[in-house]
Amino acid sequence: MSEKLLAVLVVAIGTYMTRFLPFKLKDKFRKLSSLDEFLTYSSTALISALFVTSFVSFQPHEFAVRTVAMVFVILTYLRWKNLGISVISGVVGYFVVNTIL
């Protein structure tokens, strides 16, 4: 087996374990008080963190394009409250703004 393939297998197993183990240990976690409250806030914080890290760019032009395109996302969300429409409008908005700027 090549070194590359061995590395892929080890990372694949390690990644799978980070995803699988909490499901196996859930009964132990359930006994902890305040867990529901913690996890509710945690999921919101994580989505916010994912948004920030995927949105913020250190290149001024790219950041400007993303910011303007995000206006399309917010406006269509406020109008239709539909995930698909908002994401498509954001992608199209990004393409148009990036072409113009």
Binding site: F55, S86, V87
Partner: peptide
Amino acid sequence: AIASALVFSLPALFLVLLL
């Protein structure tokens, strides 16, 4: 140009899920 526009769907998705 198309690739970077498509990649923008990920922050857009996260924002719509966050709001």
